[in-house]
Every structure is written in structure tokens, then in C-alpha cells.
């Protein structure tokens, strides 16, 4: 079962992962963007950790909302309003919960994805974080429909996220800075799709470490 401590653990792992992968994400962004995605993500999650510490014991929506606000105010690039909206909208969908059922977890990702699409207007295939998030959400849904337990479902999710992330390599970018490169954006993995994969991997790690 995911509770507020799992969510805090997830965000802490995410902050560490963004720090460790700062160079990697920035290199990916150097190829098709402006070489700042790793810097942006590290700065954003570091800020999120500072801001959530006073609300760690509150309901899950308070933690998610604080995270969203921190990202919006500190990331700086497109990832700021997009991941920020992901967390704010997830918080709105899960008000006053201390624990998340499987359905709630699906709702978290579903609302978050919808928020990213509302603000960013990207579709699957546009070479963005959506290409990781959407198949990952589908995998989570079908894993639960199939009757797998939480950890197994998250493994499916991570696997689908990885495939989604890799599927961005041949794509031609239609949104974001990379879209200015047109055809030349093909052949490179999308940085945002990669950070989304890392975030999902961190959720699995957080749940595993708590069981």
C-alpha cells in the first residue's frame, strides 16, 4: 500500500536520481535542446524537498501539491509547468487521502497525464515526456486489471516507461525546443521522456524499499 511516507520516499529518491543523472539529462538535452534539462530537474526537485519537509506528515495531496508548486517556481524550462501541473492535478484528484489504493494510483497518473496534455498540448508520437508517461499508465492499468500486486504492477509500468522512452529515439519532435530541429531531432532520445522514466523507476524503488 502506498501512503504519505511512500510518496515522500519517492520524492527523495527522485531528487537523488535527478542529481545523479543531471549530466546525462543535460547531455541528452544538448543534442536536441538547450542543454539544461538535468540542471532544471535537479534544481526543481531539490526545491521540492525543501518545501515538502514541513508537510511530510500531511495527506498525500498536500505533499503532491507542494511538489507541484515547487517545480513550477524553480525548474525554469518547459518541464516546470508540465511536471508542476502533473503534481498539482494529481493532488486535486486525490484530496484528503492518506493511503492510495490501486485505483487511486492509476488516478494519480491519469490526472497528471491529462494535466500535462492540457498545458503542453502534445500527443503521443510528438517526442516528449508523454511518450513515456502514456504507455506507462496503460501498463499500470492493465497490470491491475490482470490482478497483479502493486510491486509487480509497478515493474510492468517501469518496463513500459523504458520502452516508451526508447521509442522517442527515431521520432521527429513536434513540441518543445527540439521541434525547431525538425528532421534533425530524429536519432536522439528525448530528455523529458528520460526524466519521466527515471521518476517512475524511483516510485518502484520507493515502494520496494518500504515493503
Amino acid at each position: 500500500m502506498i501512503n504519505n511516507r511512500t510518496i515522500v520516499a519517492w520524492l527523495k529518491l527522485a531528487a537523488r536520481s535527478m542529481e545523479e543523472n543531471k549530466g546525462y539529462l543535460t547531455d541528452l538535452d544538448a543534442a536536441i535542446g538547450d542543454a539544461d534539462h538535468g540542471i532544471n530537474m535537479e534544481r526543481g526537485f531539490k526545491k521540492a524537498l525543501t518545501l515538502i519537509s514541513p508537510v511530510e506528515d500531511r495527506d498525500i495531496d498536500a505533499i503532491l501539491k507542494t511538489t507541484g508548486m515547487a517545480l513550477i517556481g524553480s525548474v525554469g524550462g518547459a518541464a516546470g509547468p508540465l511536471y508542476g501541473t502533473f503534481f498539482l492535478d494529481a493532488a486535486k484528484a486525490l484530496s484528503h487521502l492518506n493511503e492510495l489504493s490501486n485505483t487511486d494510483l492509476v488516478l494519480l497518473f491519469e490526472s497528471g497525464l491529462k494535466g500535462i496534455q492540457r498545458v503542453g498540448k502534445a500527443k503521443p508520437g510528438d517526442k516528449t515526456m508523454i511518450d513515456t508517461l502514456q504507455p506507462a499508465l496503460e501498463a499500470l492499468r492493465s497490470a491491475f486489471a490482470y490482478g497483479t500486486d502493486l510491486i509487480e504492477a509497478l515493474r510492468w509500468m517501469v518496463q513500459a516507461a523504458k520502452e516508451g522512452m526508447e521509442s522517442t529515439i527515431p521520432m521527429v519532435a513536434k513540441k518543445g525546443r527540439a521541434s525547431y530541429l525538425g528532421e534533425r531531432s530524429a536519432g536522439h532520445q528525448d530528455p523529458g521522456a528520460t526524466s519521466t522514466y527515471l521518476l517512475i523507476q524511483c516510485l518502484l524503488d520507493a515502494v520496494e524499499s518500504q515493503s
Binding site: I72, G76, G77, A78, A79, G80, P81, L82, G84, T85, V119, G120, G176, R177
Partner: peptide, 14 residues
């Protein structure tokens, strides 16, 4: 101007 400026403006509008 571009990119995230548009996204931030849209979010602010919301």
C-alpha cells in the same frame, strides 16, 4: 517569447 514562456503563461491563465 517561446516554449516554456508560453506554457507558463497558459498555466498562469488557468
Amino acid at each position: 517569447d517561446l516554449g516554456s514562456a508560453v506554457l507558463s503563461a497558459r498555466l498562469a491563465q488557468e
